[in-house]
Nucleic acid binder design. Structure first.
Lengths: 341, 341
DNA sequence: CTGTTAGCGCTTTCAC
DNA sequence: GTGAAAGCGCTAACAG
């Protein structure tokens, strides 16, 4: 028909085709569509119409090649199944989405080899930055300093303190919890938490103890650490109430543990919150809002952790030196009826 | 120093630099690294060493441009906060990851405009396919037929039956649940579920009714529909047991509802599973494994839904015509102690 | 205001 | 076995 190369059927429209249909050069078509250069408005109109008629979408790979940046970031997750990943991911995706950056999601599923593999893929794709999302708040191995793009660690901090990390403030959250119980008049308070091998459990216990001693109080006993389960919440509460029936407040390390505590207290005929106050942690709506009574809880604001991590990447991409430090996102108290009548 | 253009500091190494260091042409360097063409093994070795020394990572955008495909797919999620999204995402990411395809994650957060915006971005990035992940099993608007890439709908089917959809089999799951109760000897069975406005609730109820009538049984009463909460589980069970104290089996529409049922039965002094069997739905480990007694449940195998959706995209990319239909992933029974002693 | 030209980094014919 | 050259689709100089 003409000297135009035959494009494979179904191959996306190119700018050249738009230009031809509009009767202009590719350069002009480009200028008309990007709007970054002046073009006669009649011409622009013709180009835009041609583009629409051909369902033209500019090939981002070509732009990437030219601009040296891709408008993408990598989200390197340790394990997507982790319940705490999602709010962090959602917060980050949200922050990037509004800045029209797209997100590559990679799941290392707890495997360092797979992580390395994904890291390589992200670098090949020339992501402008990487957020590493851990599945616990325990420090994780740094990706190293020699990467060509900024890296921010979210939820799990890097074990290299000169990296940039954004984490929930578990110490502050533990403190917030116990301060609330003290504020509602409790004095004989105990702490039941998850496994001591988790930084989250240890940090929340630290905050708990700090709050107690700041108020001049002694915990009725040392914290009970165990599995992060309702069952442990029930068992630990049984143990606790047997040896310390005078307890009038329980700070639980998770909402699950708090639910277990509520169940046992109910079985023992203790009324919450009249007799004894119970506060959970995580503000996991499904558990907290359906407890009997509804569970007061500490919210780690994980969505905000993700959002801030995204902001730090944004800044680093724009050349702002990121804070070489661990940034702790404050927790919030969400009051329901298990602490005050 | 030489006639070599000065690269901006920090710009990634190019193949040309590797080639120069190895003393070969870019063409040869390319062949050596991709391994798709024959190169003297001494040369290959030199190139590989040069690439390593310079920390070379091939620019994927350049390859994309050449190859016309990107090795990426878009995951267009309606709402990341949805609890059922995650297993689907994880299943898909997993399937793609092993095929070394990377995944763009987009969250429309329930907004059609944002979805359109993300769709456009995905097309610009020349994804090889798109998986649309809904947050309920209700049919959702089709993206249309005129897209230049294959599209598969996961969890929520497309409202256009000629699209390709992969969904959990809720009818089969409801049937599986009631069949199990019948198998353990229950006869006076009731169904308590979530909101009737959800296809999931209606479909599970259909399966329930089919199972009952196949066994020649009548439900003790019509299904109770209400909110997808523990609270409703408690309330509905109170209503049910008041009017039908003879009930010996409850098929719950979710694990939360089942948990509520267990609580009420416990309050009423009915023992599970001796007196009465309770089966949940979703097999949400946190809820099911910590219930008293541990909750038998139906698992929708959502991870598999995601994996199959990914496979369908793979196939479509490879030119296999995808099934124009809704493919229902069978549910599984996960037995614990709430149905049989 | 518009078109021509020169690449971005890479892979691939096609000669040598 | 190796290199020169063309070109993927696009944008940014620079002329005209």
């Amino acid at each position: 028909m003409s000297d135009v190369r035959v494009r494979p059927a179904g191959a996306p429209t190119t700018l050249a085709e738009v230009a031809r249909l509009a009767g202009v050069s590719v350069a002009t078509a480009s200028k008309a569509l990007t709007g970054r250069h002046h073009v006669a408005s009649a011409t622009r109109q013709r180009v835009i119409e041609a583009a629409e008629k051909l369902a033209f979408t500019p090939n981002q790979s070509a732009r990437n090649l030219l601009e040296g940046r891709t408008g993408t970031v990598g989200l390197l997750a340790s394990d997507l199944e982790g319940r705490f990943m999602i709010p962090v991911l959602a917060g980050a995706e949200d922050a990037f989405g509004t800045g029209s950056i797209n997100v590559f999601l990679c799941d290392a599923r707890g495997d360092a080899v797979r992580e390395q593999h994904h890291l390589r893929a992200l670098l090949n794709r020339r992501v402008d930055g990487i957020i590493v999302v851990g599945d616990t708040t325990d420090p994780r191995p740094s990706l190293g300093k020699q990467l060509p793009v900024p890296v921010v660690y979210a939820y799990a901090p890097s074990d290299d303190p000169t990296d940039t990390s954004v984490v929930p403030d578990n110490v502050g959250g533990g403190r917030l919890a116990v301060d609330h119980l003290i504020a509602v008049g409790r004095r004989r308070i105990a702490h039941i938490s998850g496994e001591r091998s988790y930084a989250a459990a240890r940090d929340r216990a630290l905050g708990f103890e700090a709050g107690m001693s700041a108020a001049g109080l002694e915990p009725v006993r040392e914290p009970l650490f165990g599995p992060w389960t309702e069952r442990w919440g029930r068992d630990a509460t049984t143990i606790l109430m047997r040896s310390h029936p005078e307890v009038d407040g329980i700070v639980a390390g998770s909402d699950q543990i708090a639910r277990g505590a509520l169940d046992t207290l109910r079985d023992l005929g203790r009324t919450v919150p009249e007799d004894i106050s119970v506060i959970g942690y995580d503000n996991w709506a499904v558990l907290a809002a359906n407890a009997r009574p509804e569970l007061t809880s500490i919210d780690s604001d994980l969505q905000e952790v993700g959002r801030i991590a995204a902001m730090r990447i944004f800044e680093a991409i724009d050349g702002v030196a990121p804070p070489s430090s661990i940034e702790a996102q404050p927790a919030r108290l969400v009051m329901r009826s298990s602490t005050i009548g």
